[in-house]
Design a protein around this nucleic acid. Structure first.
Length: 418
RNA sequence: GUGGGUAUAGUUCAGCGGUUAGAGCGUCAGAUUGUGGCUCUGAAUGUCGUGGGUUCGAUUCCCACUACCCACCCCA
């Protein structure tokens, strides 16, 4: 073999694409019912968009971006997340001048991060995401959380947990940062190197550290929730009331911080346990300052991203993947040269009638054609041999019941009941 | 970027310092010359990951490289 798929990428095989289509359809439907409309943005953007949008202190920007110079010496980057591109699109086309809120979603959108791949982590992965602009109220946050939650439940998932938090706004977060620094300053020496760095740049990220040592030092640390300003506190209270009103179970987890710099107020994650540890299926939050930061008007926003591969992975582990629908519903078996073209014509006629149909293209024995029909998932087999040709009929066999009947060539489509 | 494991048929995996490298599943065919799933019989398919070393001899032992899997970091 000349080469193989690049590290961290994955082919979707013909037996697997049906699963993708099912969850894609479920996502489209959930969005359509909530008034979200689809958008598609480019796979690559100018690098500066992510430097300013995602935040140049984040790991994503610092070490995970696929950045390169194009032939015109422009620095471009394969998008590492979905929100920045959508915000750019909203600004470029002045969509903020239209009716608010502006509710958008993107589906099966490829994202790229240069990381070491492992279970549930790819270098090219796909996200479903929604964004809503212009609405400052917590009901939008809650609506999106509900959309994600019901969607995953609707796919049949169990064992999901919704964690929410508020990380404040530019008014109250610095107050918390200062409190946290004061708390940690005495123990700075015992923190891991990464966290020493975080101490200066973004101390809240230390809460995210998985190191047992750092976690031990954090015992008794002040909580952001005790430092929220009045506006953020009200927003967070309303969010919880809205979730409760929609009967969405949640837990407040002050440890959720998120790795993207643009979040304000609401952050949330939907996680599940895979047996080898928790896995985040969906993560998002509010980003009231992002649009302005990218040179637009002051426009609040909220959104989430959901990992397509992770959704499929969890469905597989829970045994709830949709069945492969097979290739066709009707297979036309032909016997002998004389039946070949009439068989082709019949297949064509069935296809015109909207029926998934195929015929033998390998001049195989009837037995082999039946085996192939079975493997294709055919519900019916239409046999066209010498006898049938003379009578102008086919022998139509229901593969499940084994019943056979002679059907005039012109009436085959009507006799198919799927 | 750090650490651990693995690499043999399409696939899942056995195996051994020594003739011709095996099995299950899958594929194809026959048993049934016009009928699938089950059963039985048979057949095809391998640079034993790549390169080097040790050796009379290496798929087997050693080293390097590469790829894949897993964990850390981080995240969808």
């Amino acid at each position: 073999m000349l080469t193989q798929a690049p590290k961290g990428t994955k082919d979707v095989l013909p037996t697997e694409s049906g699963r993708w289509q099912v969850i894609e359809a479920t996502m489209r439907d959930a969005c359509a019912r909530a008034g979200y409309r689809e958008v598609r943005t480019p796979v690559f953007e100018h690098t500066e968009l992510f430097l300013r949008g995602v935040g140049d202190t984040t790991d994503i920007v610092q070490k995970e971006m696929y950045t390169f110079l194009d032939k015109g010496d422009r620095s471009v980057t394969l998008k590492p997340e979905g929100t920045a591109g959508v915000v750019r699109m909203v600004l470029e086309h002045k969509l903020y001048a239209e009716a608010m809120p502006l509710k958008l979603y993107y589906l099966n959108c490829p994202n790229f991060r240069y990381e070491k791949p492992q279970s549930g982590r790819y270098r090219e992965f796909h996200q479903f995401g929604v964004e809503a602009f212009g609405a400052p109220e917590a009901t939008v946050d809650a609506e999106q959380i509900a959309l994600a939650w019901r969607l995953l439940l609707g796919l049949g998932m169990e064992g999901l947990a919704l964690h929410i938090n508020s990380i404040g706004c530019p008014a109250c977060r610095p107050v918390y940062h200062e409190k946290l620094r004061q708390f940690l300053s005495a123990r700075l020496d015992t923190l891991c190197d990464t966290c020493k760095d975080r101490f200066a740049r973004n101390p809240m990220r230390i809460l995210d550290c998985k190191s047992p040592d750092c976690q031990r030092q954090l015992q008794g640390a002040p909580s952001i929730l005790d430092c929220l300003c009045e506006g953020c506190q009200t927003h967070f209270d309303k969010l919880q009331a809205a979730l409760t009103a929609m009967d969405i179970p949640f837990s407040v987890d002050p440890g959720i911080v998120r790795g993207l710099d643009y979040y304000t107020k609401t952050v949330f994650e939907i996680i599940t346990d895979t047996g080898s540890g928790p896995l985040t299926l969906c993560g998002g939050g509010r980003y009231d300052g992002l649009v302005e930061q990218l040179g637009g008007p002051s426009l609040p926003g909220v959104g989430f991203g959901m990992g397509m591969e992770r959704v499929l992975m969890v469905m597989e582990s829970q045994g709830i993947l949709p069945e492969d629908p097979g290739a066709v519903d009707v297979f036309v078996c032909t016997l002998g040269e004389a039946a070949l073209l009439p068989g082709l014509a019949l297949t064509h006629q069935l296809r015109q009638a909207g029926i998934r149909a195929d015929a033998d293209h390998m001049a195989r024995s009837l037995k082999a054609q039946f085996k192939y029909a079975d493997k294709c998932g055919a519900k019916y087999v239409a046999v066209l041999g010498e006898d049938e040709l003379q009578a102008g009929v086919v022998t139509l066999r229901n593969m499940a019941t084994r019943e056979e009947q002679k059907i005039p060539l012109a009436d085959v489509a009507k006799a198919i009941h799927l």
